[in-house]
Simulated assay, not measured.
Amino acid sequence: MNLVHSLRTHRLLAIVRGKDPGAALNTVRTLTEEGIAAVEVSLTTADALSVIRRARAELGPDALVGAGTVRSAPDAGRAVDAGASYLVTPALVDGLEPYGVPVLMGALTPTEVEAALARGAAAIKLFPGSLGGPGYLRALRDPFPEVPFVPVGGVDARAARDYLDLGALAVGVGSPLVGDAADGGDLKQLRARAAEFRRVAAGETP
């Protein structure tokens, strides 16, 4: 399943960022077990490339394990070599096309959206989503009705429902979903939060 199709189907992108590589890997594994199809491992995670490499080996070649916080072409190269099947950037980044994987490119303003599309973005990471909230996505969709937006940043369950109702392709969720699991926190609680976000993505009111 390709990235955009998965996001359109499942409407969730989980963002894993933590200080403990083993816990981060367990978090990726748990999210996948709970039906979260697309999981991004931020390159700010301790030993992130090893986490991506080990997750890829465990979950197989078709798993949607990506690298986030990609800020340069060298970052992208290292991530793809480790097995990342897609890249997520916090801002406009040049030179990612040669790596041949989908890119969710960070953008906020209309000018940045156009620039990200010109760089071949598969979808737009609307970041930080908390700055304008769902109302800002509504405003952007007037001039960009065909652009797939994935709001990221401060997306709790209620905001996720609002964004999805307004036509977001999916939402990217970090700490409201992952909590402290990637630092060694309770995986049972992570499973409960994953179930909540899956219900939201399915159209249920949080």
Score class of each variant (00 low, 15 high):
A121V: 01
R119C: 01
V80K: 07
A116F: 02
P110L: 04
L117T: 01
S85Y: 00
A115M: 14
V101P: 02
A121D: 04
A115E: 15
A84V: 06
S85M: 11
V88I: 15
Y99C: 00
Y99N: 01
S85F: 01
A91Y: 10
S85D: 02
P90K: 13
G106P: 01
V88A: 08
G120E: 07
L92D: 05
G95P: 05
A107T: 03
M105R: 08
V113W: 02
D81T: 15
A107D: 04
M105T: 07
E97K: 14
L96Q: 10
V80G: 02
A115G: 05
G100I: 08
E97G: 09
G106A: 05
G95R: 14
V80W: 14
A82D: 09
P102C: 11
A116M: 04
V88P: 00
A121W: 02
V93S: 03
L96F: 07
D81G: 11
V101H: 11
A107K: 07
L104A: 13
V101T: 11
L108Q: 13
A107V: 08
V88Q: 01
V101D: 05
G83N: 13
T111V: 09
G83Y: 13
L117C: 00
E97Q: 15
L87Y: 08
A79M: 11
V80H: 09
Y86G: 05
L92C: 07
G120A: 11
G95M: 10
A82Q: 12
E114L: 15
Y86H: 15
T109Q: 02
R119K: 15
A107P: 00
V88M: 11
A107Q: 04
A84H: 04
A116C: 00
G106H: 07
P102M: 12
D81A: 15
V101F: 06
G100M: 06
L92R: 10
A116S: 14
E112G: 02
L117H: 00
A118L: 12
G100V: 10
A115L: 14
V113K: 04
G95L: 12
R119E: 03
E97Y: 03
L108R: 08
T111K: 06
L92H: 13
L104W: 01
A79K: 13
P102Q: 11
G120D: 06
G95E: 09
Y86T: 03
T109G: 04
Y86C: 04
V93F: 11
E112M: 08
S85K: 15
P98H: 09
L104H: 08
E112V: 13
T109C: 05
T111M: 05
T89H: 04
E112K: 07
L108A: 07
R119S: 03
A116L: 05
G95W: 12
L96H: 08
V101L: 11
L96G: 01
S85R: 15
E97D: 14
V80P: 00
P98A: 07
V93N: 06
P98C: 06
V101W: 07
R119M: 02
A116I: 04
P90T: 13
A79S: 14
G95D: 09
V93Y: 06
G106F: 10
E114C: 13
G106Q: 08
L104Y: 07
G120Q: 06
G83P: 10
T111D: 03
L104M: 15
T111C: 00
Y86K: 08
E114S: 13
